[in-house]
């Protein structure tokens, strides 16, 4: 079983890039088994075809628009994802929606898709997250770790990395 953890967003626009920051933190704090691939997708579209094609589970981390306060971490799964695409919560879904539609056409769509979304506060120019959103990166990482655990993958902790939750 191949699992892809895909971080999306533009790191030049602060909280817009939180999805990328989450997968960076995941890779920094945990060792993952070879079946799990952590990918910084940035704002790419069709370049992600090779990465996503044929994976069993796709775990997306991304900034999402929601009425909840900034910094809220939300989770959407399979059946909720289509409506997520139609209502355009995320700025990247156009590219990603195209990639997933294309993979449907080639019979390589992921079996399951889960989205760990973080509600952004500040999407102005800059490379640092807002303090509110930066404070929940760890929670989002834990949410990803829980998802992977649910799929039967136990992640190893990297020793004493500064910034990793205990």
């Amino acid at each position: 079983m191949r699992v892809v953890v895909l971080g999306l967003g533009n790191i030049l626009l602060r909280d817009e890039g939180v999805g990328v920051r989450v997968v960076e933190a995941l890779a920094e704090c945990y060792t993952v088994p070879p079946e799990v691939e952590i990918v910084d997708g940035g704002t790419a579209g069709m370049e992600l075809l090779n990465v996503i094609a044929g994976c069993e589970h796709l775990l997306i981390c991304d900034a999402v628009k929601d009425d909840a306060p900034p910094g809220t971490v939300i989770k959407l799964t399979d059946t909720e994802i289509p409506s997520f695409f139609q209502t355009r919560y995320s700025p990247h879904q156009l590219g990603l929606a195209d990639v997933l539609a294309t993979l449907t056409l080639t019979d390589e769509a992921p079996g399951h898709v889960t989205l760990i979304g973080i509600v952004p506060l500040d999407m102005e120019l800059g490379i640092e997250l807002s303090p509110e959103v930066g404070a929940v990166v760890g929670h989002a990482v834990e949410a990803v770790v829980m998802e992977l655990r649910g799929l039967g993958f136990v992640l190893g902790r990297r020793g004493a990395v500064v910034g990793c939750a205990d």
Binding site: D40, G41, G42, A44, M46, E47, L48, L49, N50, V51, A53, T102, L105, T106
Partner: peptide
């Protein structure tokens, strides 16, 4: 159009082999 989906990925695989990763 459908075949192009395969071939553009082949080209991208070359970028990935030499550049260590894509999209970055």
């Amino acid at each position: 159009y459908l075949q192009a989906l395969e071939y553009q990925r082949i080209a991208n695989r070359i970028v990935a082999i030499l550049g260590s990763k894509t999209p970055h």
